[in-house]
Simulated scan of single mutants.
Amino acid sequence: MDIRNFMEYITLALGWIVFYVIHSLLANLNIKRKFKLWMGAYYIWYRLIYSTLATFLFLGLFVYAGSIAPDWVYWPSDSSTYFGYMLATLGTIIAVKSMKGISLGRFIGWHAHDDLNEKEQLILSGWYSHVRHPLYLALILIFLGYFLYVPNFASMIHLMALLLYLPLGVYYEEKKLVAIYGDAYIDYQRNVPPILPRFKK
């Protein structure tokens, strides 16, 4: 690895830090209330702006990573490639199943709404009965699968940044969810694990 590649990997890691900091800040209830005061009636489009910004940053990081000359962590084999593909596929399936019962339009923001006044129903069925954050589990599997499929330093940074962020991400997201749903979410926390599923008969 030469110094240029090293600096590009540092830039990629910093990019992920910026992405996750923005992700957590803009999802914070206090920050959203301040934006609502500033945006007024236009706050109903906050979710769409948030989703658009997150999508561009997310895709931009992968485009940037693709521009870096690859340095391999190990040489991929047929078995690691196949296993990576299967993990990524499983993660995609979990992500799709987790969205069942959730309005995609509201989740992305296509359907304009005030998410500070309109409380979504707390979903406790499907994958949410096994794990509180199935979308995070899906991302772990997809990023891990991607690393096994393309085992270079860029994909390793994608994975490591996600794993390092998740404890903080879960902590701040659950503070928000407890503030929104109160005792119902606290009881849910007691019975369902955060990311690693526990299947009950």
Results as ranks from 00 to 15, higher is better:
W75L: 15
G40Q: 09
G91Y: 06
L137W: 01
S67W: 11
Y43K: 04
I49G: 10
R106E: 14
S77I: 03
I94C: 06
L135S: 11
Y42T: 14
L48H: 01
A138Y: 04
F62S: 12
V96G: 03
L57C: 03
H113T: 05
F83D: 04
Y74D: 00
Y42H: 15
T89A: 09
V96D: 01
R132L: 02
T55P: 04
G101N: 11
L137D: 00
L90Q: 07
W45H: 09
L122R: 11
A54L: 15
Y43F: 15
F107M: 07
L104F: 10
Y74W: 08
A41N: 15
S51M: 04
I49H: 02
Y85C: 13
L139Q: 13
G40L: 09
W75V: 15
Y46I: 05
V96M: 10
I140P: 03
A65N: 10
H111I: 15
S77R: 08
W110G: 08
G101I: 12
N117Y: 07
I49A: 12
L87T: 02
T92R: 04
L61F: 02
S80N: 05
H130I: 07
N117G: 12
A41D: 15
G91R: 04
L57E: 08
V131D: 01
Y136Q: 00
L61P: 00
I94M: 13
S51E: 08
W72G: 02
G66W: 10
I44H: 06
T92A: 15
A88N: 03
I142M: 14
W75E: 15
A41C: 09
S79G: 01
R47W: 04
S103P: 00
L139T: 13
V96N: 02
T89E: 04
S129P: 10
A95N: 02
L57P: 00
Y50F: 10
G84Q: 08
I44T: 09
H133W: 10
Y42V: 12
M86A: 13
T81H: 14
I140Y: 14
G40H: 09
A69F: 11
Y43P: 03
D71F: 09
L61G: 02
S103F: 06
L90Y: 03
A112M: 11
Y46Q: 06
L48C: 03
L59D: 02
K119D: 06
F107V: 04
R47G: 01
A69T: 15
S129A: 15
I49R: 00
D114N: 13
S80A: 06
Y82Q: 13
Y136F: 03
